Computed example of a mutant assay.
Amino acid sequence: MLIIPKVSIIIPVYNGEQFLERCLESVSSQTYKNIEIIIINDGSTDNTKNICELYLQKEPRARVIHKKNGGVSISRNIGLDLAIGEYIYFVDADDYVLQNGIERLVNKAIRNLADLVVAEYYVAYDTKKTKISPLNIKKSNDFLCSILSGKNHSALWNKLFSRRLFDEIKFPADVCYIEDKVLISQILMTYQPKIDFLNAPVYVYWQYEQSVTNSNDRRVMDILAAHINIESYLDEFTVDENIRTAFASSTYSCLWFILTTVDKQFLEEAVIIAKQHIEDMRKYRKYSALSPKVRFLLLSLKLPVGIAIPAIKTMRKGLDQLSSARRQARR
């Protein structure tokens, strides 16, 4: 008997009028037909609501939820609560799915009894598309190390999930940036799912200047919140030294990035959060070979906030001057 499981496709959107129609059309035109399409309009203030309502009139497999703005994690959780499919697939509203993407993912999952299928994808910028092939790592702990270290992308849209992986896990409501890294880390630690890889692209991830989080955006500090969430799961679910090493290296690199790039209006808040996080990270210190620059940063964070902030500002000024000198030297 031919098995045709339902796939729940969850699409959160906020002010997505520029690309939403392209995204929805790519989902409707999938060669795999047994899908439900759950669109969560997260309090958009542009024409997104009208686009969604028009889409409903021509797509009977779709449902739309209009809600107050609360962030992508809450939107996806609403989608998970509504989903009835045996598989879950997430799409971002400014990207699109290749026409046979869902079919290829489902076939791979069924054929190899996989709980999580990871596929190739394209990164697009202007007219250029580059195919990305994830590292084929099938053991859960090793795959988690690759996610924590950044060797494999934590993005959701190149992955098909078995519905059971969300029985006890949801997106962290307080994290709206790299929330996918938190979720996948929790899934891998909790369920140790069977992982398989699809050597074919299923998705086109568009990069736009306005869509990239920058240092002026307070969301960059969600990186700290994300690592705090992951740490709580590490303490509960694993003693694997490779995972702890990957986590420690990732955390210290992120601390450096945040405190040297976050806009100065958020620096004090970032320092206060980082100081607490560093205390919680003491038990991981032995797992990471700290560079001199990170050691200096950690020493600065040991100081009272009123002294730590000027020290970090001085360090940032020195880094800016060094970068400027290097740019001049290359001319």
Rank of each mutant, 00 (worst) to 15 (best):
K139T: 09
H153P: 00
K33Y: 04
V106H: 10
S291C: 03
K317G: 03
V7L: 05
V305P: 08
V123Q: 08
F247M: 04
R282D: 02
Q192G: 13
L80K: 15
I278W: 00
L319W: 06
D222A: 03
D320H: 10
G318C: 10
L165E: 00
P292G: 10
S29C: 11
V204E: 15
Q276Y: 07
S232V: 01
I37M: 04
S8V: 10
L298Y: 01
Y287E: 06
N107T: 02
Q328F: 12
C176S: 14
D142E: 15
I147D: 00
L160I: 08
D263V: 06
K275P: 05
A270S: 13
V262C: 12
D167N: 15
A225T: 12
D235N: 13
S8A: 14
L255A: 01
N112M: 14
I9K: 01
I272C: 07
S323G: 09
T251A: 15
D92H: 06
E168L: 10
N152Y: 11
P5G: 15
L259V: 07
S44F: 08
I307E: 11
P60H: 05
K317Q: 06
N136V: 10
S253V: 00
A311M: 04
E236M: 02
L113I: 09
Q99C: 04
V204S: 12
E231Y: 13
K293P: 04
T314S: 14
N158H: 15
Q328L: 14
N199F: 06
P310W: 12
F161M: 05
N34D: 10
L319G: 03
F19V: 07
G71T: 07
R219T: 03
I223S: 03
E21I: 11
V106D: 09
T31E: 05
F143R: 10
I39W: 08
N107V: 02
E59A: 09
N41S: 12
V271P: 05
Y191D: 04
L144G: 00
V239F: 03
F296S: 11
V212S: 14
L183D: 02
V182M: 06
I273W: 14
Y284I: 00
M1K: 14
L56N: 05
D46Y: 12
K194I: 13
V175D: 09
G79P: 02
Q328Y: 12
F166C: 13
Y252G: 09
N214I: 08
E103H: 10
R327H: 09
V118M: 04
I169F: 02
I74N: 01
G150T: 02
V72K: 10
A93E: 11
E120R: 13
P60E: 12
Y208D: 14
P304A: 08
S288G: 03
I102F: 08
F247W: 06
I132Q: 13
S140M: 04
R331A: 05
P60R: 09
Q207C: 01
R330Q: 13
R111Q: 15
N69Q: 07
G43I: 04
N242V: 00
